[in-house]
């Protein structure tokens, strides 16, 4: 398969995949803002930031369920 064909396939895929990526981005931003703003997290904060950024979908969920301390 040559390059042009691959690019064409990608272009076709993009409008379908884009909403999922946008949703993941929103989740990531919400989780990052909450993580950075919170005075205390369960476990070191920088680890949570890495988890939120690099574990798609699961990372932000894990932070919001387990990482926050109720104040």
């Amino acid at each position: 398969m040559n390059m042009a064909e691959e690019l064409g396939q990608l272009k076709e895929l993009l409008p379908i995949i884009a909403p999922i990526m946008v949703l993941q981005l929103i989740l990531m931003v919400i989780a990052l803002v909450l993580c950075i703003k919170s005075s205390q997290t369960r476990g070191p904060k920088w680890v949570w930031i890495l988890v939120i950024i690099f574990a798609n979908l699961i990372g932000p969920i894990a932070f919001m369920v387990f990482g926050r301390r109720n104040e």
């Binding site: 999922i20 989780a31 909450l34 969920i61």
Partner: peptide, 16 residues
């Protein structure tokens, strides 16, 4: 922010 992020998780699952 539960009212925002929980529906987003469900939407992502539903689209995938």
């Amino acid at each position: 922010l539960k009212l925002i992020w929980v529906p987003i998780v469900f939407i992502a699952l539903g689209i995938m």
